[in-house]
Design a protein around this nucleic acid. Structure first.
Length: 262
DNA sequence: AACACGGGGCT
DNA sequence: AGCCCAGTGTT
């Protein structure tokens, strides 16, 4: 038990957070939470998580689901392509792994939408296999405590995570470490890495994509003309955007109609 | 290494 | 209007 451990665990006792996905041991339920939490505030996930599991309680149900039904529940969380990744990951889990969430890093990384961070989180939280990983709260926790520059490479952060993690209690340790990191928001160190800045959301291509998706989810299938009217966007803006969304598998085109699904 | 990808809440 | 927030896939 080092000083670092004492600080982190002490913080956890004082202001550790409780979430539905921290109460379950079901790897599928934890998997869903990790996919939702990518680049998404915890508070927002809280509002959708239980509803999502009510609609898709087990991985087989999600695997069978139409993309439109998944996106209807997902809508509002953001980064809609993650819903497609998640549904497709569920299919792959059913086809290749017999409906069991895989517990090896290699197999997890082969699932769509699962990278180093999500795979690491899953191994620790769902399977209690101690696995170093880096995400924003862990980065903040490590750079703050060890007083290293915010621009420090993930590789170096990762080796510090590896060197300091509590291998006997991986799940609790990473909850504690992430909560410690979360408690440090709002008072960044001098050299804190500036998260790459976004364009304004208003008027952005992202916003247009969101409008298109919402229109198609609520009205079914629409022509280009109808989409122009429903979203209030110009055809010249809509056309390339629709082509990309079809390409990504978010939308499908049947004749002159566009609809949600791949 | 740089980009694209949502959207709600807060100041 | 600008900033923040449990990353991943593509180019």
């Amino acid at each position: 038990m080092t000083h670092f451990h004492r600080v982190v665990y002490d913080c956890y006792r004082r202001l550790g957070r409780s979430f539905p996905w921290r109460e379950t041991d079901d790897p599928y339920e934890i998997f869903v939470s990790e996919m939702m939490l990518q680049q998404t505030p915890v508070q927002r996930v809280m509002g959708k998580y239980e509803e999502f599991l009510k609609h898709f309680p087990i991985v087989q149900k999600l695997a069978e689901a139409d993309l439109s039904s998944v996106l209807k529940v997902w809508s509002g969380i953001g980064y809609n392509r993650r819903a497609l990744y998640l549904r497709n990951a569920a299919r792959k889990i059913c086809e290749i792994h017999g409906g069991t969430i895989p517990s090896s890093l290699k197999a997890l990384l082969n699932l769509p939408g699962v990278g180093q961070s999500t795979a690491g989180a899953l191994l620790n939280f769902a399977f209690r296999i101690p696995t170093p990983f880096v995400e924003t709260n862990i980065r903040r926790a490590i750079t703050h405590f060890f007083q290293i520059p915010g621009e420090t490479r993930d590789g170096e952060i990762l080796s510090l995570v590896d060197a300091t993690m509590d291998r006997k209690n991986p799940r609790t340790w990473f909850y504690a470490l992430m909560d410690y990191g979360a408690s440090l928001r709002r008072r960044p160190e001098k050299g804190e890495k500036k998260e790459h800045r976004h364009e304004p959301f208003r008027g952005s291509r992202r916003e247009k994509r969101g409008k298109v998706l919402r229109a198609l989810l609520s009205l079914g299938e629409l022509t280009l003309e109808e989409l122009e009217r429903e979203t209030g966007e110009e055809r010249s803006q809509l056309t390339p955007l629709l082509r990309d969304m079809v390409e990504e598998g978010l939308l499908k085109q049947k004749g002159e109609f566009f609809l949600v699904g791949e």
